Computed example of a mutant assay.
Amino acid sequence: MKPSIDLRSDTVTQPSTAMRQFMAQAEVGDAVIDIDPTTERLERLTAEMLGKEAAIFMPSGSMTNQIAIRLHCQPGDEFICEENCHVYNYEQAAFAQLSGVVAKTLPGIQGVLSADQFEGTIRPINDHLVRTRLVCLENTHNRGSGKVQPFDTVQQITSWAHENGLTTHLDGARLFNAAVATGISVDKWSAMFDSVSVCFSKGLGAPVGSALAGPAEFIQKAKRARKLFGGGMRQSGIIAAGALFALQNNVERLAEDHEKATKLADAIREIDGLSLDVDPIDTNIVIFSIAPELGTAAQWQQSLAQRGVAVLATAPQKIRLVTHLDVSTSQVEAAIEVIKETSPAMA
């Protein structure tokens, strides 16, 4: 039985009928040798929304993050990040493989760092040492249950970085979730960083793509690096149109996903043997721990799938649920009932 309620990730969303029609009608050109007009429209809108001079469309958020790191650093340089962030954990240490850069990790609380943790982290100028060049933050934080980085804290960290001659990059794969949850616009979040990556294929519901935004000269260099990494696309307007539609139609509705996640969290909080990793929930990600006597996360994942609910086991005793535009409120309510029924079944 294929699960009918898919809570594994917000990347599983399918383009809506309206989005498919918009994509089918997209004006296209060769974006490598010339200009693809739809891709150009997307890049202009993204830059405008983020308050940056320019933006560039790429196939994935991993590519936008890695190109940003490559451009901010040189081989033998070091960047500072939180130990559970996506750039460090889920991108195959591409910064080392592709760009000769190393990472210094700091332990966060639910993915959140404090400004005082950065004191003393910049290496002295010495022929024996790597050079500290960059600070990377992630907002919202995936492994932190979609935690929104506190705005004031981000401001303190990025100010410290700039005052000490470091550059800053934001992995904003779910930045629009942070903006909707806090009411603080994406351009205000973006203004604190030298470069920003945003993803269109998560909560925004586009099938493919991310963008990197920053100063025009930086983005021109990113275009060259994109070609090196194999990210040059020809008639990319077909997929850029999905992202363009998402920006124009699917941002404010992210609040609905946050409400659904809160509903899930409220139910899980009341089930004996289950505990929320982060409480309350900020956005659209719910991670809960399972008491050992109720079985393992892998067992729960299998049991829930057999009952029509797809979830993701992220650790031996942890399950992740992610709400998105393809999961209705009624489906969330149905998933809650299945989770309640599963709990005693695993005992």
Rank of each mutant, 00 (worst) to 15 (best):
P107W: 05
G308Y: 02
S201L: 01
G273T: 06
R8V: 10
T38A: 09
I109R: 10
L106T: 11
V102T: 09
A115R: 12
Q117C: 04
L166H: 02
V186M: 02
E252W: 02
A211T: 09
D10E: 13
A240F: 02
A225C: 06
N84I: 04
P75C: 02
E83N: 10
H324N: 15
I290K: 08
T38W: 00
V148C: 14
D77N: 06
L212R: 02
N89G: 14
V309I: 11
E259T: 05
N164F: 06
I35R: 10
S159K: 07
S236V: 08
L294Y: 14
V148Y: 07
R226W: 02
T140A: 12
E27D: 15
K263W: 06
V112W: 04
D171E: 07
T140V: 13
N249S: 09
S275F: 01
P215A: 10
S185N: 13
L212N: 05
D282I: 03
A94F: 00
M346V: 06
E138G: 08
Q14A: 14
L175I: 07
R123P: 01
G29F: 01
A255F: 01
I80T: 05
S99M: 01
E256C: 05
I69Q: 11
R143N: 13
K340I: 07
T39H: 10
S328V: 03
F193C: 11
D30L: 00
T11F: 02
A310C: 03
Q25H: 07
S275Y: 03
H162T: 09
T342D: 15
L50I: 10
D279V: 11
D266I: 01
T39Y: 05
I287C: 08
Q306P: 00
T64M: 00
I219N: 01
S343E: 10
G242A: 11
D171T: 04
S275N: 13
N142D: 15
Y90N: 11
S303N: 12
Y88M: 09
L166W: 00
A305G: 10
G232D: 07
R226C: 11
K221H: 14
T153Q: 13
P3A: 13
L276F: 11
A206F: 00
S9G: 09
D282R: 03
A222P: 01
I271T: 08
I319N: 10
G183A: 07
V322W: 03
F22G: 08
A93Q: 12
A55P: 00
L254Y: 05
L212T: 05
K104E: 12
G230P: 00
L166T: 06
